[in-house]
């Protein structure tokens, strides 16, 4: 298979998902509202003490982003699995690893990137300073693609399985721990006036590791699902 055709196929698979997401804007909105609600629940639970909220802010925004991105994961393969598109992809002569990578990329653009963009608004609720806000943006920008990549494995594994949604969270959330630690850690460090560079480098390293392993595992899982 020559490479222009492959690029064409990857581009088409990505744009197909973006187009479908665009025509289902309500889903995107649900994810964003969920993100905002989860983050807003914490002050209601622990009280409105500004000093405490400032301390908790980075962690809360990151946990909320993580949960929201997990909520969106079920949409990554479910409709393709239901209407037979996924088995057609599995039968494409193009490498399935790259096809699912294109799908994951489109999914991140449609559900991860909007989270990153509205995160500073939630940061304001927790009184993060300007530097911390910038680091929050950078950490989410580096971290949420990793969440989508790891989550794609779980989403493919739970296709057509009983209790898929709850099972997906059980599979995926423990794997999200390092991203959460370095992501929230970066913002905390910056809020405390320290350098967040090390955290961000580690987030970048996690993204690279996920880019190498996750699409492969996702492709294997998709093949298992369409058997």
């Amino acid at each position: 298979m020559n490479s222009p055709r492959l690029m064409d196929a990857l581009w088409t698979v990505g744009t197909r998902d973006l187009l479908a997401a665009l025509r289902h804007r309500a889903d995107l909105l649900t994810t964003l509202v969920f993100f905002a609600i989860v983050a807003s629940l914490f002050p209601l639970g622990v009280g409105s003490d500004t000093a405490l909220l400032r301390l908790m802010g980075p962690g809360v925004v990151w946990v909320a982003a993580l949960l929201a991105s997990m909520l969106a994961l079920t949409r990554l393969f479910a409709s393709d699995y239901g209407d037979g598109t996924l088995e057609q992809l599995a039968l494409s002569p193009h490498p399935l690893t790259l096809l699912v990578l294109a799908k994951t990329g489109a999914h991140w653009l449609a559900s991860g990137l909007p989270l990153v963009i509205i995160a500073p608004l939630l940061g304001l609720q927790f009184d993060l300073n300007a530097d911390a806000q910038l680091v929050l943006l950078a950490s989410l920008l580096l971290g949420t693609p990793t969440l989508s990549l790891i989550g794609a494995v779980g989403a493919a594994l739970t296709l057509g399985v009983r209790g898929g949604g709850a099972l997906l969270s059980l599979l995926v959330l423990p794997l999200y721990v390092p991203v959460l630690i370095f992501g929230a850690g970066a913002v905390e460090a910056s809020a405390a006036g320290l350098d967040a560079g090390a955290h961000l480098s580690l987030l970048g390293a996690l993204l690279l590791v996920a880019l190498v392993f996750a699409p492969w595992a996702t492709a294997v899982s998709v093949r298992i699902a369409v058997e």
């Binding site: 790891i150 494995v153 779980g154 594994l157 399985v161 599979l171 423990p174 794997l175 390092p178 590791v209 392993f213 996750a214 595992a217 294997v220 899982s221 298992i224």
Partner: peptide, 12 residues
């Protein structure tokens, strides 16, 4: 499916 999640876990 179990094998995939176990392998992903062991890397993690």
């Amino acid at each position: 499916a179990g094998a995939v999640i176990a392998l992903v876990g062991v890397i993690n």
